[in-house]
């Protein structure tokens, strides 16, 4: 429960939402965009964030799109994760998503909320990082589209008042061979020690990671090493680990050394399986 006097707005268009944001901003009301809201409510009750007003974007129809558009498939930011899983248009996303939080919570957590979250795992972004997706963002200057690699660096690099409307993915990516693996401290529930998602395209493997560093990432350097088929797998993995961004996490879920041990095993498992896949 949030204790403060927090205002609630539910605009029905993108423009209204942005306008509302700047009105509230001007009134010094610390506005925040709200989709599933699970993170705002949990971090808010712990006083980690202090919204003064929330702008619920779920009534904006663009944020609820789940459809084909020319060469692309559109995922609206307000779609709950379980909705995407049930439709299962993009199996890599489905499987990555199904490891997040728990089923009931995913009825509420939205794809946009997860990828834009404060909690640093943001695992649902991994498939989009792997698939050269396009991001549709609303802001003061209207709607803009960006290739994800231009706007995502650890987090989405939004300007003030911007919010995510849609994630677009080229249809050719929807059915590529993939694996996604989440390893935890123990058994099958909890935050990740590491989550790794992988696809194969034109005989090259792409990898994206969450839980390894305090941000999700995809790294060309890491991929180059892992795809160096001239070398044995162990050596490729060792070279890839040298290219990891810093810092590697060292926290209650697991030490840095243990995470790297798990990473080695996981990468090996994935490479073996993916190199067999056509």
């Amino acid at each position: 429960m949030l204790a403060g006097n927090i205002e609630y707005y539910q605009p029905s268009t993108v423009n209204e939402a942005v306008e509302q944001f700047f009105i509230l901003k001007k009134e010094n009301k610390l506005p925040m965009y709200y989709a599933g809201g699970t993170e705002i409510l949990t971090l808010g009750r712990l006083n980690i964030i202090h919204p003064g007003a929330i702008i619920d974007i779920k009534a904006i129809k663009e944020t609820l799109s789940h459809e084909s558009y020319q060469e692309h498939f559109i995922f609206g930011a307000s779609l709950p994760l379980t909705y995407i899983e049930e439709k299962n248009i993009f199996p890599l996303l489905t499987q990555t998503s199904m490891e997040i939080a728990d089923h009931t919570a995913r009825n509420k957590i939205t794809i946009g909320g997860n990828v834009c979250g404060n909690i640093f795992y943001r695992e649902a972004v991994l498939p989009f990082l792997l698939c050269d997706s396009t991001v549709v963002v609303a802001g003061k200057e209207g709607q803009k589209t960006h290739p994800i690699q231009d706007i995502f660096n650890k987090t989405f690099q939004f300007e003030e008042g911007q919010f995510l409307i849609q994630l677009l993915i080229e249809k050719k990516y929807l059915t590529l061979p993939f694996i996604t693996i989440k390893k935890r401290q123990q058994w099958e529930t909890g935050y990740p020690l590491i989550t790794v998602a992988c696809i194969k395209i034109e005989n090259q493997l792409r990898f994206a990671f969450s839980g390894l560093c305090p941000f999700p990432f995809r790294s060309q350097k890491v991929e180059t090493e892992l795809n160096n088929t001239l070398l044995p797998k162990e050596e490729r993995i060792n070279h890839a680990i040298e290219q990891l961004p810093t810092p590697v996490l060292n926290d209650v879920e697991g030490s840095k050394e243990y995470r790297l041990f798990v990473l080695r095993n996981t990468l090996k498992e994935m490479i073996v399986e993916m190199e067999e896949k056509e």
Binding site: Y8, G37, T38, L41, T42, T104, A105, N107
Partner: peptide, 13 residues
């Protein structure tokens, strides 16, 4: 008919 955790949902929603 969908199940939700009512502690992370606003009544207004």
């Amino acid at each position: 008919d969908n199940v939700y955790k009512s502690c992370i949902m606003l009544a207004i929603e």
